[in-house]
Design a protein around this nucleic acid. Structure first.
Lengths: 168, 168
DNA sequence: ACACGGGCTGTTATCTTGTAACATTGCGCC
DNA sequence: GGCGCAATGTTACAAGATAACAGCCCGTGT
């Protein structure tokens, strides 16, 4: 794995995941949405938690907890691992971010609000990771579990390979 | 997580995963199959690697690398983390075991021989983990990737919840 | 016989990821 | 004012994984 503080993958830190886009808008939208959701649920999106959410949203690449920590520490000297993990746990609990299990890293959720497990396409080249919502895939997962009378609670679906840009 | 050396989940160490079965046969079958596969590919299933495979197969529960190490060390005093990880890497490379990403643990492959990513049902109660092969699910995954022109290489599918026995 | 080379294992040290446990702060409420 | 709770601070450590180099064994070519 990359050294602490270094980007996990090549490409600009402002990572333009799918195609060029105004990533500032992505972040703003995500933060606005998060504030709305937390207000509606009457849970506290504290400045610390919001800052962590912002850091996770810096790119469309999953970011490691210790990378978040390094970044957070720039503005928040008392930051320690538990600081970050608590914030990440909160954000996951509210469905605002996802953990990418195969990378031990975290990614902003593009479908925040509705509780869901998430399905991901992870480019091994550029690191960009896209969350997809595919009802057929969802149905196939449910069917597979049902077939053996397994009561599904959480589903991890992470497909790694090459994104359209990198394959070209 | 459980202390090193302790079982990750309750239940007997001889873990009878799905229903009661003669687990000795499972192990024997897996080892025999592994020997055949390695012989056919002209790669070396050394005593060390075979021992690690055997340990992973002790139950139908995913086993952590350090649990493997503890067990291995009983008969192999020089065992160290690299010893275990090298063996696990070899076994994964040959498709004889899988890594369960959401648990950072390893599980014997019941479909050894054909290269595949594996799809798993993980019981959070008893820990028993079943590998399933579901062509429809496989197709749904491929479709989902194809839809956005993503070139899939490795697929992680891990569904956690309650197995039929534990749900009852 | 012997040098070489590759594959496997030994060995030490370290890095990365994640938690336990207890202390402190701030704020609403009675 | 004191209580209780949620959030954060702080110290220490557990758990998972790898880097880097050393040594061994065995087959091959000369």
């Amino acid at each position: 794995m990359a050294a602490r503080g270094a980007a996990q993958n090549k490409g600009p830190a402002t990572a333009q995941a799918h195609q060029s886009h105004n990533h500032r808008e992505c972040i703003d939208d995500a933060l606005t949405r998060a504030r709305e959701i937390c207000a509606a649920r009457d849970v506290q999106l504290t400045p610390l938690r919001e800052k962590v959410l912002q850091i996770v949203w810096r790119s469309h690449k999953p970011v490691g907890a210790y990378d978040v920590l390094d970044e957070l520490a720039r503005s928040h000297k008392s930051a320690r691992p538990p600081t970050v993990y608590r914030a990440l746990d909160f954000l996951m609990g509210e469905g605002l971010i996802h953990k990418i299990e195969s990378l031990n890293a975290y990614l902003g959720c593009t479908e925040a609000g509705a509780p869901h497990s998430g399905q991901f396409l992870i480019c091994r080249q550029c690191g960009a990771t896209e969350e997809i919502v595919d009802p057929k895939l969802e149905a196939a997962l449910d069917q597979a579990a049902k077939r053996v009378h397994f009561s599904a609670e959480h589903k991890v679906v992470e497909i790694s390979g090459l994104c359209a840009r990198c394959a070209a």
